[in-house]
C-alpha cells in the first residue's frame, strides 16, 4: 500500500469558531484529488465528528489524513482526560459533553456512533488521564 500524501492539522480545545476547519481543508484536498463525492462525505462526517470531539472533550490534539491509492485513513489524537468506558461512549445518545457544547449544537451522544457508521474500519484507544486516539479508514 503506497501512501501518496498526508496532511496534519492541530485542533484547539474549546474553539467552536475554528473547529471544523481541519475537516474542511481535508474535504477540499480530497475534492482536488478527484475522489468520489459520496466517499468524501463519509470521510468528512467521520473526520468532522472526531475534530469536534477534540474541541469539546480534550485539551487539544490533531487530525491527520493519510491518503493511499485505495483508501483514506484519518487519525484523531488528543491530549485529555481519556474515555473511562469506551463501550458506553459508543452507545447512541450517551454523552459526557458539558452544557455549553450542547448550546453549540453538539453533545447529543451521536459523535462516536456516527464516526463508526461512516467508515469501513474504526479503531479507538484511550488511556485515562492521557489521551484518546481514533483511527478510521474509508476505502475508495
Amino acid at each position: 500500500m503506497q501512501e501518496l500524501l498526508s496532511v496534519k492539522y492541530d485542533v484547539e480545545s474549546g474553539d467552536f469558531i475554528r473547529g471544523g476547519e481541519a475537516s474542511s481543508s481535508i474535504k477540499k484536498l480530497l475534492q482536488q484529488l478527484g475522489i468520489k463525492a459520496d466517499i468524501i462525505k463519509r470521510i468528512c462526517v467521520a473526520c468532522y465528528e472526531a475534530e469536534m470531539n477534540i474541541v469539546i472533550h480534550s485539551y487539544g490534539g490533531y487530525i491527520e489524513a493519510k491518503i493511499f491509492n485505495n483508501k483514506v485513513e484519518i487519525i484523531a489524537k488528543d491530549r485529555g482526560p481519556g474515555i473511562e468506558n469506551i463501550d458506553l461512549a459508543m452507545k447512541e445518545g450517551y454523552s459526557t459533553a458539558p452544557e455549553y457544547a450542547r448550546e453549540m449544537g453538539f453533545g447529543g451522544g451521536m459523535g462516536l456512533p456516527n464516526m463508526k457508521k461512516s467508515c469501513d474500519e474504526f479503531y479507538i484507544d484511550s488511556k485515562m488521564g492521557e489521551y484518546t486516539e481514533v483511527r478510521m479508514v474509508v476505502y475508495f
Binding site: 467552536f16 469558531i17 473547529g19 471544523g20 475537516s23 474542511s24 474535504k27 463525492a37 462525505k41 468528512c44 462526517v45 468532522y48 469536534m52 453549540m104 449544537g105 453538539f106
Partner: peptide, 16 residues
C-alpha cells in the same frame, strides 16, 4: 435549525 452558529454551516458543508 435554530442553531445559528458557524457549526450549522460546517455541518451542512460536510454533508454537501
Amino acid at each position: 435549525t435554530g442553531l445559528t452558529n458557524v457549526q450549522a454551516v460546517r455541518t451542512a458543508e460536510m454533508l454537501d
